[in-house]
Write a protein that binds this DNA or RNA. Structure first.
Length: 484
RNA sequence: GACCCUGUGGUGCAGAGGCCCAGCACGCCAGCCUUUCACGCUGGAGAUCGAGGGUUCGAAUCCCUCCAGGGUCGCCA
């Protein structure tokens, strides 16, 4: 049987480096073994899933060259590859589990569950569902669900006192029964949770190797139980270590740029990013540091992946990118520049904003450099406008931080009107004058007090650049201190 | 807090009982090259291989205990 792997991101935000990291190893195994690599969209959380995010994931992974053989956009024999389109499949499988006595309907309200958790926390007990509805007579459960009472379906974990579960890299792992509660499989809206959808899809899609992030390790017993309950053959499980911030915590956007869009816009080459991510896996047998995706695949071995959670080091990535860059022939480098920062597409968005404000071509470079730069300098004049009258630098930094996290980060449709709405909503909520917010953001994002219309400018700059410069402004303001 | 995973210089990786009083790379420092800078080259500082016990003639490599870091504990994935 041929090896089949998959990357299964959920489209809930900007495309993440962690996704690329996991995708890389899945891709490598499939390619190395002459199998298939699939992309499956896990959009069962209909609150947070977003089509724009899905699109960005496609683009980002393609940019990196991690192409898939089957997926929502390319089709394949085991589709659909978007979980929201497989609703009926999960429902049927959940039903089957109930029929087999491996799952049961649960009528506990969110309120009761919350109270239960609070009580368990207080008494310092293990957190988890107490199994109340498991004892319900089948007939009663039947009656209540027929009456339309909202309920979920839970997995009935076996009574045995422990479960031993296999991980390719870590060997057998033993979990105590007290540690495994009855996980929800089907939510009250009828959508499956990750656990159900994931196992059902992996089976139906003939996945042979589940290579995913370490954060899933503790739910492995639930997944193993599902395979047993269905009487299905299990795939090989392999949990990859998590990428870390400098302080060793799980990589996060507060401490690192995590969006693949950021690396792309910042001018990193896909081959360098891939090279760097691969390097952290420690798969290359010798001390070789620079290699192509093809070379990586050729030498790939799942067993060699190192388990220490690697700190993501932007400095080393940058060095590696420089290596790639210096090796390019100038015409190749030019082509790279033209394919992104100097693309016609981008230039044609910048030009209309700049055209009215310059008189010569030379003026274009003087006026418009911030459309191409990474970070921008704040000169004395800019600094004067960064903090509105009557506000302190600390206050302004705090405001920008909140603006960033609550208004900018969640914005997936990055265009003028949406940006304006977000900024105005922020001003309203923060009790700031709109014009003060606008000037502060203008200066933070461009280094200038005079720019083309703000929202259009931000739209053209792109979310990643705006985000980066806002963070830069926050740092600058904090350094300025409360005295300034 | 409970459970699980992990643990080689600041960071990433090599090392799968003697070749290791530990190697490569990033970063840092210095020299060379260059009008300058960068690149490149050369050299340097930096690790009691998390700690303590074993096993062994011999341990970074095997065993035990402890410690530290991380992850999970959701009708999120």
């Amino acid at each position: 049987m041929s090896v089949r792997t998959r990357i299964a991101p959920s489209p809930t935000g900007d495309p993440h480096v962690g996704t690329a990291y996991v995708a890389l190893f899945n891709y490598a195994l499939a390619r190395k073994q002459g199998g298939q690599f699939l992309l499956r969209i896990e959009d069962t959380d209909r609150q947070r899933s977003h089509p724009a995010s899905e699109q960005m994931i496609f683009e980002a992974l393609r940019w990196l060259g991690l192409t898939w053989d089957e997926g929502p956009d390319v089709g394949g024999p085991y589709g659909p590859y978007r979980q929201s389109e497989r609703f009926e499949i999960y429902r049927q499988h959940a039903e089957e589990l109930v029929r087999r006595g491996a799952a049961y309907p649960c009528f506990c309200t969110p309120e009761r569950l919350e109270a239960l958790r609070a009580e368990q926390r207080e008494k310092k007990l293990a957190l988890g569902y107490d199994g109340r509805c498991r004892a319900l007579a089948a007939a009663e459960a039947q009656r209540r669900s027929a009456a339309g009472e909202p309920h979920v379906v839970r997995l009935a974990m076996p009574a045995e006192e422990a479960m031993v579960v296999p991980d390719l890299l870590r060997g057998d792992i033993r979990f105590e029964r007290s540690q495994m509660d009855d996980q929800v499989l089907l939510k009250s809206d009828g959508f499956p949770t990750y656990h159900l959808a994931n196992v059902v899809d992996d089976h139906l899609m003939r996945i042979t190797h589940v290579i995913r992030a370490e954060e899933w390790l503790s739910s492995l017993p639930k997944h193993v139980q599902l395979y047993r309950a269905f009487d299905w053959e299990m795939p090989v499980f392999c949990h990859l270590p998590l990428l870390r911030n400098a302080d060793k915590s799980k990589i996060s956007k507060r401490k690192n740029p995590v969006s693949l869009n950021h690396y792309r816009r910042a001018g990193f080459f896909p081959e360098a990013l891939v090279n760097y991510l691969a390097l952290m896996g420690g798969v290359m047998a010798n001390d070789q540091e620079q290699f192509t995706l093809e070379e990586f695949v050729a030498g790939f071995s799942l067993e060699r992946i190192s388990l220490g959670g690697p700190v993501f080091d932007p400095q080393k990535l940058t060095w590696l990118n420089g290596k790639h860059l210096r090796k390019m022939e100038p015409p190749v480098l030019l082509a790279r520049l033209r394919s992104y920062l100097l693309s016609d597409d981008y230039m044609l968005r910048v030009l209309p904003l700049v055209q009215e404000r310059i008189d010569t071509l030379e003026g274009f470079f003087e006026y418009g450099h911030f459309f191409f730069a990474g970070e921008v300098p704040y000169d004395a004049g800019a600094m004067k406008h960064l903090v509105p009258k009557g506000r302190t630098p600390a206050e302004t930094a705090k405001a920008l931080q909140i603006l960033l996290e609550e208004r900018i980060d969640p914005l997936l449709e990055w265009e003028s009107a949406a940006i304006e709405a977000a900024l105005r909503a922020f001003a309203e909520a923060a009790g700031w004058e709109a014009k003060d917010v606008f000037m502060t953001v203008r200066v933070a994002a461009t280094g200038r007090a005079a720019t083309p219309p703000l929202f259009d400018t931000l739209a053209v700059l792109g979310k990643e650049v705006v985000r980066r410069r806002l963070r830069q402004a926050i740092q600058t303001l904090k350094a300025a201190g409360p005295a300034a």
